[in-house]
Design a protein around this nucleic acid. Structure first.
Length: 252
DNA sequence: ATGGTGGAAGCTCCA
């Protein structure tokens, strides 16, 4: 079972890239973020023609998440329980016995801002929820907007204390994994300088100025079934790409 | 030079 996650930064613009990626990478389940699409406009039929069922939760202009699957999707739910939030950042559902949680974490703007406080509150609620979960086979995928360690940042000295790499955010990430979730990417030896997001500005992608902020977290049982986790750079190399590129984990 | 680019909406906000 192959699980993928990708912040597409507008599903309308990126639909051709998404269809090509589904054909080439062949994920069984794909979690999407920043669809920026109201539910009435979600491209259900195009994705069905490509072999995928969709569940989604979107809004105009901002945010929006979706789960695509080649096999039936059951027990769809929306949002973090007991965390009131109008923003569409969380959808969860069961596929082949695996509970899939698709997340678009708040960006946080900058430490000290109201959006940063909201990001930390959102993470507290997420950790509380996942910590109470009794689901054995749990996979949390998405744009978590945190680079957990210095090796996940192209220039950790420059980024220290900045948004995505401040210590409170790194602590929030550790709190999530401490409920019993493994960072799938770090289950394996990886090359250095592996990132999932590069700013559109200053030619950051070609310069390698990236961060690893998109993640796949697996419960203990699923981590034992995981045989690989890779970052797929092909979509980021295309014309008019998303600023993020997909991450894929393979489960046996 | 505290810069720059992109998406969506619509003459600005968000990332």
């Amino acid at each position: 079972m192959r699980l993928g996650t990708w912040n597409v930064n507008s599903l309308r613009v990126r639909l051709p890239h998404l269809l090509d990626w589904l054909r080439d990478a062949k994920p069984d389940v794909a979690c999407l973020q920043e669809t920026k699409t109201e539910d009435a406009n979600f491209p259900v039929s195009e994705l069905r023609a490509a072999g995928y069922e969709s569940v989604f939760c979107g809004q105009k202009s901002y945010n929006g998440v979706a789960i695509l699957s080649r096999t039936p999707i059951a027990d769809v739910a929306y949002g973090i329980p007991d965390f009131a939030d109008d923003l569409k950042r969380c959808i969860h559902a069961t596929v082949n016995g695996v509970r899939i949680v698709c997340l678009y974490a708040p960006n946080g703007e900058a430490p000290g801002t109201e959006k940063y406080a909201y990001k930390l509150r959102w993470y507290e609620a997420l950790t509380r929820w996942l910590g109470q979960s009794k689901v054995a086979d749990l996979a949390v995928l998405g744009d978590l907007n945190i680079a957990p360690e210095p090796r996940d940042v192209h220039n950790p000295k420059r980024w220290e204390g900045k948004i995505h790499f401040s210590e409170p955010e790194r602590a929030a990430f550790r709190a999530v994994t401490n409920v019993g979730l493994k960072d799938a990417f770090r289950l394996f030896d990886q090359p250095e300088k592996q990132f999932t997001w590069w700013d559109y500005r200053l030619n950051a992608f070609d310069r390698g100025w990236g961060l690893r902020i998109d993640h796949i977290l697996l419960s203990t049982g699923l981590a034992k079934r995981c045989t690989g986790c890779t970052i797929d750079l092909a979509p980021r190399r295309r014309e008019r790409p998303s600023d993020h590129t997909p991450v894929i984990a393979e489960l046996n």
